Computed example of a mutant assay.
Amino acid sequence: MRIHPAYLAAPLLSAGYGILRLVDGIDGSRGPGPAWTAGHLAFMGALVLFVYIFREMWLMLGRSRGATAVLVAGAAGAGLAFVQFAIDVVVGFMAADHEAMGPLFDQVQAVPGVSLLVYQAGPVLFYVAQVVLVAMLAVRRQVPVWVPALVLVQVLLPFVSLDLIPLGGLLALIAFLPLAVSDRRVPAHA
């Protein structure tokens, strides 16, 4: 049995982002500054690892059409979320203080399609793909049934409050443990 570190690192980086976000907000505002930048970079790293994880789950699912569609949607969503976080980092570097960030974000979001693709609908694909891929694995009995339930909870927590992101990262870590320590039997035709 081998440890697959991406399944552990992605949730830990997500939790790290959430913790740094809380630290950044102690003074009553978020960004710009070291905690803002470090937190965003941590989540960008998590997004890259999640694309790898999606690919691994796709392989476990035998590269089926359904799994392929979810992989593509999830990777696109992760890519769009990555762009959002990259914009946040650049705005953080460009702005002298928190108040100066608002007009810069307004300029970016004024570009047609950016608000919808980068800040709204696009990243949702990333979160939906997480749930769907682990649900597909559970249907095939490749992970316990509690895994998709836990992933669903961790995906929904930030919609309740962004301050719950660290808890979501911890739940994702627990949910991905069976995948992190599994033999990940890939179908022979893969």
Rank of each mutant, 00 (worst) to 15 (best):
A129D: 05
F105G: 05
G79K: 07
A100Y: 08
V111P: 11
L116T: 14
G77N: 04
L179Y: 06
G92L: 08
R141G: 03
G168T: 09
A180C: 08
L104E: 03
L117V: 09
G79T: 11
H4N: 03
S29E: 11
L41T: 05
V181N: 04
L170C: 02
S14R: 12
V153K: 00
V128K: 06
A42G: 07
R30N: 08
A81W: 11
D88A: 15
A35G: 02
W146Y: 14
V23D: 03
A135Y: 13
A69P: 03
D106W: 00
G66R: 12
A46T: 11
V118C: 00
G62H: 07
G122V: 07
V143Y: 09
V118L: 04
Q120K: 13
W146D: 01
Y7D: 01
R65G: 13
A135V: 01
F54P: 09
D163A: 15
Y7V: 08
V143P: 12
L49W: 06
I19Y: 09
G102R: 14
I165P: 08
I53P: 08
H98T: 14
Q154M: 13
G169W: 04
A129T: 10
V186Y: 10
F105N: 05
F176T: 08
P158N: 05
L41Q: 01
G122F: 06
S115A: 13
D163S: 15
A46V: 11
D106H: 12
